[in-house]
Amino acid sequence: MKTAGKIKGTKNIVLLVLPQVQLLDIAGPCDVFTSANRFMMNDQRDSEYRIYLVSGTAEKILYSSSGMPITCGHTIYDIDFPVDTLLVGGTDLTVLDNINTDIYTFLRNIMGKVRRMGSVCTGAFVLAGAGLLNGKKVTTHWKFADILQKSYPELEVNVNPFFIHDQQIYTSGGVTSGMDLALALLEEDFGQPTASEVARHLVLYLRRPGIQTQFGSALPDYDMMSRFIKEVRNLLKHRLGENVSIEDMSEAMNMSVRNFSRVFLKESGITPGRFLEKMRLDQAKNMLEYTDISIDMIAAQCGFGSAVSLRRLFMKHISLSPSQYRKAFKGTE
C-alpha cells in the first residue's frame, strides 16, 4: 500500500461517459475524487486530481438513463492532455449493441499511456469489447455477470467482490460499487487516512462489508432463461420443499436422465442440482425479506432440511447468515 503523499502533482482522471449512463456510475466516483481534493487542499498538499468528463461519442452532451443531460468537456476524438486514470461508466446493454467501434480503438490506443484503467458496472463490457480484459479476473453488476462470462469466455468473472484489481485493470460491480473502487484508488494514491476522511464525509464504508451477490438473485432473470429452462423452473417452483431428484425432473420433462442433464447444462450453464439449490436460496431470501416466518420453518419449506443447512448455504453464497440477511434487507412496515 502506498503511503499518504506518495503521489505529487496533478493527476488527470477521465470518466468516460456513454449514452444512457446511470448517473451514479459517473457522479459517485467524481464525488470521491473531488472530495479528496478538498481535504488535500486543507492539508496544503502539493497534490490533486483533475476530473474530466469525456464523451464516448462525437457529441459532448449525452443523456443519462434518468433523462438528465450530462455535458462533457471533451470527446474521445479531441483529448489533448495526458491521462493518469480512465474509468468507463456503464450503460444499458442494448446501447452497447450499437456503439461506435471507435471507442474500442480509442481504449486500445490509450491503454499503454495510462497508469490504470477501470470500469463501473456494465462498463466492463466496453473494456472486454476492446480486448483489454482477456485473461483477467473481473467483475461487473451481479445481474449481468453471466452474460459477460458467456460473451467473453476468456475472462474470469467473479460476481462477489465490489471491485477487482488485476494488474493495471480495475473493474467494479453495480452502480454504487464505483464509489467503492474510487475510494480504493484514492487509498492507493494517498493512503488510508485521506481515504477514510473522504469515506466519512460521504457517509460510506471505506471497505464495504459483505459481497455483491447479497443484493441479487442467485439465478438470472426469468426473461434471460431459455424456454426449456423456464419450463423446468415452473415445474420446480411449487416443489421446493420436496426431495426432488434429477430422475424426477427428467421424468417430468419426458426425457432420459442423461439427455435431460446434457440439455440442461448446455442451456443454463449449471447442473440441474445446482439450479434447484439456487431456486431454493432465492425463495429463502424472498421469505426472509417479506415474511416473519421462523428460520427453521423457512428451511423446511425451501427444502433445506434444517436451519443449519440453510445457514451454511447463505454463508457460502452471500457471506451473511439468514438472520443477518433478514435484518439487513427486510422492509419496515
Rank of each mutant, 00 (worst) to 15 (best):
G56M: 02
D80K: 13
L96R: 00
F144K: 07
I79F: 05
G131I: 02
G56I: 05
K60C: 11
R50K: 13
I26T: 11
K113E: 09
D43P: 06
D31F: 11
I99S: 00
I76R: 02
T85G: 03
R115Q: 15
G123T: 09
H141D: 09
R38E: 13
D80V: 07
S66L: 13
Y104D: 00
I110E: 01
Y49K: 10
M111H: 08
A145P: 08
M111G: 04
N37W: 03
K137N: 08
I110H: 02
G123Q: 11
P69N: 10
I76L: 12
I26R: 05
F125K: 04
Y63C: 08
F39H: 11
F125D: 04
S47E: 15
K137H: 11
K143F: 05
I79N: 05
Y104M: 01
P29V: 09
V54M: 15
V114N: 04
L24E: 11
Y63G: 10
D31W: 13
F125E: 04
V138A: 06
T101F: 00
H74W: 12
R108L: 00
I76Q: 08
M117P: 03
T85A: 07
L16Q: 08
G90C: 10
G73A: 14
Y63T: 10
G129N: 05
V95A: 04
P29H: 05
I70A: 12
V32H: 02
V54C: 10
K143V: 08
N37G: 09
V54D: 04
T71G: 12
T75C: 06
A145M: 04
M117V: 15
L132D: 02
I110W: 01
L133E: 08
L23A: 15
F106K: 01
A36L: 06
P82D: 14
S66I: 09
L127I: 00
V32K: 03
L23W: 04
A58H: 08
N109L: 09
G129T: 03
V54W: 00
Q44D: 11
F33K: 06
W142I: 03
V32F: 04
G112L: 00
S66A: 12
T139N: 07
G129C: 05
L127E: 01
N109H: 09
N37M: 14
K136W: 00
V120I: 13
I76K: 06
I51A: 06
T94D: 02
T140I: 10
L133W: 02
L148P: 06
Y77L: 15
T105E: 07
A36D: 11
V95I: 14
K150L: 09
L148W: 03
K60E: 13
V32E: 06
G123H: 15
V17R: 02
C72P: 11
V83I: 12
G28C: 10
N100P: 04
R115M: 14
G131N: 01
R45T: 11
P19W: 01
L133M: 07
A58I: 08
I61F: 04
H141T: 07
T57C: 11
M40I: 11
S119E: 07
L148D: 01
V88P: 03
G135P: 06
M68K: 10
G67Q: 08
L133A: 03
D78I: 08
F81Y: 14
G73N: 15
P29L: 05
D97A: 10
V138M: 03
R116Q: 15
L148K: 00
V21H: 08
G118D: 03
P82Y: 03
W142N: 03
F125P: 04
G131V: 01
H141W: 05
H141F: 09
V126I: 11
K137P: 08
G135V: 09
Q20F: 06
